[in-house]
Every structure is written in C-alpha cells, then in structure tokens.
Lab assay of single mutants.
Amino acid sequence: MIVFVRFNSSHGFPVEVDSDTSIFQLKEVVAKRQGVPADQLRVIFAGKELRNDWTVQNCDLDQQSIVHIVQRPWRKGQEMNATGGDDPRNAAGGCEREPQSLTRVDLSSSVLPGDSVGLAVILHTDSRKDSPPAGSPAGRSIYNSFYVYCKGPCQRVQPGKLRVQCSTCRQATLTLTQGPSCWDDVLIPNRMSGECQSPHCPGTSAEFFFKCGAHPTSDKETSVALHLIATNSRNITCITCTDVRSPVLVFQCNSRHVICLDCFHLYCVTRLNDRQFVHDPQLGYSLPCVAGCPNSLIKELHHFRILGEEQYNRYQQYGAEECVLQMGGVLCPRPGCGAGLLPEPDQRKVTCEGGNGLGCGFAFCRECKEAYHEGECSAVFEASGTTTQAYRVDERAAEQARWEAASKETIKKTTKPCPRCHVPVEKNGGCMHMKCPQPQCRLEWCWNCGCEWNRVCMGDHWFDV
C-alpha cells in the first residue's frame, strides 16, 4: 500500500509500505531520502505521535493516508518512550493509558441525555464484534464512529474520518494533550489543546475536521460531520418502519427517538411537499423529531443533505422563500418566477423588478396576487391545505425507538455506581478489583462488596467470576 509523507509540512511524497511495516522502518526510509538522522524524526498522525514499535496496521493507516513527519531533536526523557523501550505506560498493571487514536474515538455516547454525564468515556458498548469485510486488514473493525456528507465523488452519507490540525499553522502536526470525549470537544473551536510539532510553531489549540472515509482524499478535501447519525450498535428499532437498520439518525429530543435514513428521507420529502418545515429565527429551515417532541429541531442543517441534490435544492429554495415571508415580504405569483420581494408595508401595487435578471417585471396586487387592478379585489380565496398535519407515529413504536432507553438498560445490566462519587462504572470481565475512572475520584473498590478495596476482598473473592 501507499502512504503519503509530508516532511516538515512540505509537499508530500509517496512511500510504499506493508501492513506489518513498523513506524521506525518508515522513519528509516524517510531519513534516507531526506539525509537526516532517523532518531530525530517524529511521525504524527490523527493528533498522535506514533511509536517506533507500532506497525502501519496498528495505527489504522489506510491506503493513501497522509502522515506528517517532522525533524525535531529529542528532548530529555522522550527518546526512550518513542523507541518502544522502557515506557512506564506499558508496564503490566499500570494505570496510565495511551491517548486514544482519533481513528478509534467514539462519540456516540454523547447523544445520551444530559443526566448521563461521564458515560462518553466510561461506558463502552460490546456491539462492535462484526466481522471485518472481505479485503480489510485482519482485526480491523467495521464499526463506524462518525458519518459525514461527502460532496465529492460519493454525493451521499458516508463513514467519516476525524482529523485534527494546529489552529495556528493549519498543519496536521499537532499532538493532542488528551483525546475528545464528546461532540462539544470536536465542534467547539479551541476547546481542546495540544502541542504543535512543526518547527518554530508555538500553536497549542486544536482544530478538528472530518474527511470522507470511503475514498482517498487530499489535504484540502473536508466534509461536514453529521453528528446525529450513528451506527445502530444498540439495535434500536426505527420509529417509523420498526426495522432494525444501521446507520440511524438520533433526534435530540428527551427520548432520543431513532429513525433509519430511508424513513428520514421520506419524512423530509413529505414535509417538504406540504411546505411544513419549521422556520426558526436562529436555526433556519428545519424539522423536529418525527414524533413531534418539543425542543427537538435539527440544529445542523447539513443533515438535510440526505435528501439528495434535487430535493436539497428545493429545500434551500423553500427556506429562502419562507425567510422572505417571515420578513413581511411577498413572492411573485407569476408561474416560473417566484422571486422574493420586500415592498413597503402599505404598498398595494407590487412590481417584480426586472433588474439584474432576477425579476420578471410582472405587476400584481398584494392582496389577491392577481395582475394589478384598481378598486376592490374580486375574490380572495383562503389558501387550502395549509394546516399542519401531524406525522403519524405509532405510540408503541415510539416507545421502542428510544436510544436513551437502550442506554439505561445497558447501564443497569453492566454497571454499578462507584461507592464514593456514584458514577456508573462498567465491568466487562476481569477481577473484582475496580478503579473509578473519574479523575477527581480514582477510588479503588470491590465490585462484589461495593466497598473500598481491602485485604478481605483480596483474599476471599479477588478473582471470582
């Protein structure tokens, strides 16, 4: 396979590697080409510095992935760790964990309700045991953590790749202090920090972006993250068709209702045909949960890209028209025109101005929308079919299609509260000796007794199943 190397943020060049090629071997190839010592090179990928003893497969490097290699003399205490030698983080029983690669970060837990604080980093599902597709590297999971809308060759929703760059020099040479644990960490600028490894760059702020994971991409090709779309790892039924499908869209209502993408497309087109989208002054033209839940309008309007190009163009047109109407304007009634106009409040005669090729020149009556006339309008008909009709959803289907309910059931079956801080902690095999993952707590306690870890627990039921 081919990976592209950008040395000291210059133009990239291809390097041929195998899945079992080590990072140090990659350094040696680059060092020979650039005429520099291999031990002064640092390989940066997806916000993480890659260790010498890791392989291309370990690092989730795919065909035509772009890695950054910078030349920086080692500072005291760094060289041993980078070589894969006596790194205290690798000691058996050590409590410190390697910062998780962005290629394996899962933010789907952050669609849980606000009262489930902490689960994004504490609760991990076991539903990723799908067998890898044919042709994928051994052991590589097909679980997708992110979804994007690819405006490039795909023109559809695709699995996405999370990447990070330095907000100062805009190069992907920043190593994160810690990985993101929720969508806010990724979507809110300057929320996460790190250290830029580019020479002479003092940058410390992280800037995240997404790429389409279905095809090789260049540095400049980015895609918009659709953070309401998630892999259906909890096997929730769709609120409309009641099938279990994946991926799904999880509405931001209190129940976190789930809808499959085909039904979401149908829901949007139906509402669009009836012009029953909601115009929100802050958000724009949007839709609420299909069950009509309060405070559930979709905030990231790129989710409506699921409509496809033709329907999305209609959505944008109707949204612009609705904006004009909300501002007190009118639409030209001549067939084939429909231009938005903003006449004076007491102006009865409205002319669709033909300047700049935008208007048709038609003069019409503001009251009856017919060709302009003197005197009273002959008839004014009330528009028919403008009443909002509820999208029919079966109550039982709505009850079963809740992301929140599956989460709470998982928590109930696989977790116990920490005796000190009461945060839910998952036990997935292993011994009875637990350690609270909350940095402010870190209590060592017994899963069996529910009390602080002691010699009695150690001698009596340390390794009970």
Rank of each mutant, 00 (worst) to 15 (best):
V3S: 02
R6K: 15
N8K: 02
S10M: 11
P14G: 04
P14A: 04
P14W: 03
E16A: 06
E16W: 06
V17D: 00
E28Y: 03
V30Y: 00
V30S: 00
A31D: 00
Q34G: 05
V36L: 08
V43R: 01
G47Q: 03
R51Q: 15
N52K: 02
D60M: 08
D62N: 14
Q63W: 07
H68V: 03
K76D: 14
K76I: 15
Q78H: 11
M80I: 13
M80G: 14
N81D: 15
A82T: 12
G85P: 11
G93R: 12
E98G: 12
S108H: 10
S110D: 14
V111H: 13
G114D: 14
D115C: 05
L123Y: 14
H124M: 07
T125Q: 13
K129Y: 07
K129W: 08
G135A: 13
G139L: 12
S141C: 09
I142L: 11
C150G: 01
P153R: 11
Q158E: 07
Q158M: 14
L162I: 12
V164H: 09
T175Y: 08
L176P: 07
G179S: 12
G179C: 04
V186K: 01
V186P: 00
L187R: 08
N190G: 14
S193W: 10
G194N: 01
C196W: 01
P199N: 08
H200T: 13
T204V: 08
F210H: 02
C212Y: 02
C212A: 01
T217C: 12
S218P: 09
T222P: 08
S223D: 10
S223C: 13
V224Q: 12
A230M: 10
N232I: 00
I236R: 08
C238Y: 01
S246I: 00
Y267T: 03
C268F: 06
Q276S: 09
G284S: 04
V290Q: 03
G292H: 06
S296L: 01
L297H: 05
I298D: 01
K299M: 06
I306N: 02
E309N: 15
Y318Q: 04
Y318I: 09
A320R: 10
L325T: 05
L325W: 04
Q326C: 05
G329T: 03
V330L: 10
L341G: 06
P343W: 04
P343Y: 06
D346V: 09
Q347H: 06
R348M: 09
G354W: 07
G355A: 14
C360I: 02
G361Q: 07
G361D: 06
K369E: 06
G375Q: 07
A379L: 11
F381R: 08
T388P: 13
E395L: 12
E399A: 11
E404H: 09
S407N: 14
K408F: 08
T410E: 13
T414V: 14
C421K: 00
C421R: 00
G430I: 04
M434H: 05
C441R: 00
L443N: 11
C446P: 00
N448D: 08
G450E: 02
C451Y: 15
E452T: 15
N454I: 02
R455I: 15
V456A: 15
C457H: 03
M458P: 15
W462I: 06
W462T: 03
